[in-house]
Design a protein around this nucleic acid. Structure first.
Length: 812
RNA sequence: GCCGGCGUGGCGAAACUGGUAGACGCGCCAGACUCAAAAUCUGGUGGUGGCGACACCGUGUCGGUUCAAGUCCGACCGCCGGUACCA
């Protein structure tokens, strides 16, 4: 393979950009708001493995788009930074004793070098790292704001604890696997433990997080995942009195219309009422069952066998709508954490209740009949969960489901035994980790009271420790630093308190980094209001779909809180979201160390150059879809750039180029402009290839054809672009030039090929002047030899003529 | 099961509001250059049949709408991602 001097070219221009601060951007008030764009990449976690080929995919896409926008006169904010707190550095520290800061910062240096080697146009003066004190100071500040608003609290809750990681994990960080619940990071076994934890009241924002999705230009799949995660469902809470008048059981149901079909009740085994209502005869069985449930942890409980289990408590409740006495059971298919931890069981119309009732011989009653068969009173052989018409429901019989729900709820309300209710799957966010390498939670515990540290005393610095090992007692390694833990109570009482030793989860830093980029060196505020107004919200956010729920939901939550305290002026941070597709290994399998098919960007840059790497990743296919890597494909793109370079080495002539090439140029400008604007980089590149192929066939290289092309190419292959621009005798930088305009008149040919069809099949073609009328085309078609051949002896039924496209003759 | 997405040559993929299916690239074939090879340049390349002009078939499957369907509608099949006893 021939090689144009890409290494020299790339090094030269990277040095130039660095020296001239080419991509530094400031807040110029003369630029109107509509001419400003904030284009954001998801910042990386700087792992020891270095950059992966997946990183440059999104980064290249935004880089091309930013360079394009700048050339079209936009002020563009395009920063980069590092999500640098997290478990990997700490795990390494535990093994080797190296300070996490040391490894993290070495990794950051490596990442920065690798990212720079690809020629991205970031404003590096805005770089942030979440582990730096001047950054996490403001993470702590936001935490205090949350606390001030009552959105941060301490609770003893059963939390996921991971022995191997030595920390608790958020619900979202725990995966359900065939081997039971596992940590998302490292796939370790986790178990429930009741522990005192800092929590964030994200549930208070559930509705707003749900509604906010409406106006966002995000992939439908991500919105669906967030909706599903929030899991809002509407229904009613209903109170069932106990038959012995000793109390009542409250349940949540989405189907109050099926109340007449409730033939028994089920409580979660952990439900506090179980203790009290269990009859002496059932106590032994109930205790045994509760113990078994506990031991099963959530492993078999959720995963194994759809088979239901359960035990009767011996208690009896009364169905408030019909006075029927119904038994109260416990079963592990009822989760304590959802709704009221208790249900009314309607086996006729709920699949799970049906299975349970079948297994234990409980009565099954039909209270809903299908719409198209409202008199149906047959016995149910399976649960009917579809809507229909109420039957066997007293005075509510005959009502369609939606109406029955409403009427019965109203009736319950009037009797004071029920009310409309909304439930969410979303739980409050467990916000503490028993780890060293994270932001200290800025609170001191004084005699059982949690006193926040005043904002003017921030940051609470992470102290040096002897050992990074978790204590195993569920406490952070920070608990061992006595002189740090002992602290004066910030309330001025003179009491001696104990610092909070948990740190924040890794998500904390990434919840607001896009705001710090706006004003990264501000020592007085997390970002100045002027700068927030100048740039926010983020116009385009590009990153992997793996952050669909966690990062994107948490960041939206924090942003809404900041909005509520008046710190930001928009209530959604990211207007448009694009997920780049995964880059797979050659052959379409996942890239992984164990398969040995991992591509290292450094190797590609060394062998083919950064411009080839960038352009290949964009040429592979649409940005959003998963695509397999192909070294041959990469070589093809490299060959293209090599052809471009060799073309530039020929003599350039002035003068008027042939009209056909001018037309192709203008079509190319149009296509590349439109496609770059819509992030369809693959087709923009193919148009550039078509253009270069034609230039190769021309007798000479005309300046008027070459200069605009260099401009079009420059966002894609910025190093080569700069070089070709100066080779044309211009001053750098090409990135400061205006994007070429096309002449619409030159994007249309004066002649077009018209397809001639008979009964929809192409039988001939002809060339006609652009804009030839339908009547004229019809006449020409009927005079065509081949059309005559295909139509003689047949009756012409109809002729459809579409100008500049085709003529279809329909015959019988 | 449910939610979201995707099925087009040997491969990655194009195809604007329905209007020449397969642009561009890879691979392959041929020619030019060369003592030769590589590199490079030029041309060809969906399948089947035919010496050929051509003909027929072809966008996961089946059916529908239309002069015309990869594109619209209905049913189904397959793959990928997410989620799962959430009452």
């Amino acid at each position: 393979m021939s090689k144009y001097p890409f290494t020299d070219i790339e090094q030269r221009w990277q040095a130039f950009w660095e020296e001239h601060q080419t991509f530094r951007v400031t807040e110029d008030p003369t630029v109107p708001k509509e001419k400003r764009r904030y284009i954001l990449d998801m910042f990386p976690y700087p792992s020891a493995a270095g950059l992966h080929v997946g990183h440059p995919e999104g980064y290249t896409a935004t880089d091309i788009y930013c360079r394009f926008l700048r050339m079209r006169g936009y002020a563009v904010l395009h920063p980069m930074g590092f999500d640098s707190f997290g478990l990997a550095a700490e795990t390494y520290a535990i093994q080797k004793g190296t300070h996490p800061r040391t490894t993290t910062e070495a990794n950051i240096d490596q990442f920065r070098r690798q990212i720079k080697s690809l020629g991205f146009s970031y404003d590096w003066s805005r770089e942030v790292s979440t582990h730096k004190a001047d950054y996490y100071r403001w993470t702590q500040w936001i935490f205090l704001k949350l606390h001030e608003r009552g959105l941060a609290y301490v609770a003893e809750v059963p939390v996921w604890y991971c022995e191997a990681l030595g920390t608790v994990l958020a619900n979202e960080e725990v995966l359900t696997t065939p081997d039971g619940p596992r940590s998302e990071r490292g796939n370790h076994r986790v178990e429930r433990r009741p522990l005192r934890q800092w929590m964030l009241k994200i549930t208070e924002y559930a509705d707003r997080l749900l509604e906010g999705l409406e106006g966002l230009d995000w992939p439908e799949s991500i919105k669906a995942m967030q909706r599903n995660w929030i899991g809002r469902s509407e229904g009613a809470n209903v109170t069932f009195p106990l038959a012995d008048e000793s109390g009542s059981v409250e349940v949540f149901t989405t189907r109050p219309d099926t109340l007449f079909g409730a033939t028994y009740m089920v409580l979660a085994p952990e439900h506090p009422l179980v203790e009290r209502i269990t009859t002496p005869e059932q106590r032994a069985a109930v205790n045994a069952y509760r113990e078994r449930t506990n031991l099963k942890s959530d492993l078999e409980r959720t995963e194994l066998s759809k088979e239901k289990s359960g035990v009767a408590t011996g208690a009896v409740a009364i169905n408030p709508v019909n006075g029927h006495k119904i038994p109260v059971w416990i079963s592990d298919y009822i989760l304590i954490s959802y709704g009221t931890g208790a249900i009314m069981a309607v086996p006729g119309h709920d699949e799970r209740d049906f299975e349970f009732a079948t297994q234990f011989g409980l009565p099954i009653v039909r209270v809903v009949a299908p719409d198209d068969d409202p008199d149906n009173a047959t016995e149910l052989t399976e649960a009917m969960s579809a809507y229909g018409v109420s039957v066997n429901s007293g005075r509510f019989s005959g009502l369609p489901t939606a109406e029955a729900k409403q009427k019965i709820t109203e009736w319950l309300e009037s009797k004071g035994i029920g009310s409309k209710a909304v439930n969410y799957k979303l739980r409050d966010w467990i916000f503490a980790r028993q780890r060293y390498w994270g932001e200290p939670i800025p609170v001191v515990e004084c005699d059982g009271e949690y006193v926040p540290i005043p904002v003017d005393q921030l940051p609470v610095l992470l102290p040096e420790v002897e050992s990074y090992k978790p204590t195993g007692t569920g406490e952070s390694p920070l608990a061992g630093v006595e002189e740090w833990v002992r602290a004066e109570c910030p309330d001025g009482s003179g009491r001696v308190g104990r610092r909070e030793t948990s740190t924040m989860p890794q998500w904390a830093g990434s919840c607001w980094y896009y705001l710090r980029y706006l004003d990264p060196h501000n020592e007085h505020e997390f970002a100045s209001r002027d700068k927030i107004d100048y740039w926010m919200p983020v116009d385009l956010y590009v990153g992997g779909a793996e952050h669909a729920v966690l990062h994107l939901l948490y960041a939206r939550f924090w942003h809404k809180v900041l909005f509520d305290i008046g710190a930001v002026t928009t209530d959604e941070p990211f207007l448009r979201l694009v997920n780049q597709g995964m880059i797979l290994g050659e052959g379409g399998v996942k890239m992984s160390k164990s398969l040995g098919n991992v591509i290292n960007p450094d190797d590609i840059v060394a062998e083919f150059g950064a411009d080839s790497m960038r352009m290949y990743e964009m040429f592979m296919g649409p940005l959003e879809v998963a695509k397999p890597w192909s070294t041959n494909g990469l070589a093809g793109v490299h060959r293209f750039l090599d052809r471009v370079y060799r073309l530039s080495q020929t003599d350039i002539v002035d003068g008027e180029p042939p009209i056909e090439l001018q037309r192709l140029l203008h079509k190319t400008i149009r296509k590349v402009t439109d496609d770059t604007d819509s992030l369809a980089f693959n087709t923009a590149i193919s148009q550039m290839m078509i253009y270069v192929n034609e230039l190769y066939k021309a007798d000479a290289l005309y300046r008027a054809l070459w200069e605009p092309f260099v401009l079009l190419l420059s966002p894609y292959a910025p190093h080569l672009g700069e070089q070709l621009w100066v080779d044309l005798g211009h001053e750098p930088s090409v990135s400061k030039q205006s994007w070429p305009e096309y002449d619409p008149a030159l994007t249309v040919d004066d002649e077009v090929t018209i397809v001639l069809q008979v009964n929809g099949k192409v039988r001939s073609k002809l060339t006609a002047a652009t804009g030839t009328s339908a009547q004229e085309l019809e006449r020409l078609a009927l005079a065509d030899d081949r059309i005559i051949e295909w139509t003689t002896g047949k009756q012409v039924v109809k002729i459809v003529a579409v100008p500049d496209k085709l003529v279809n003759v329909v015959v019988r």
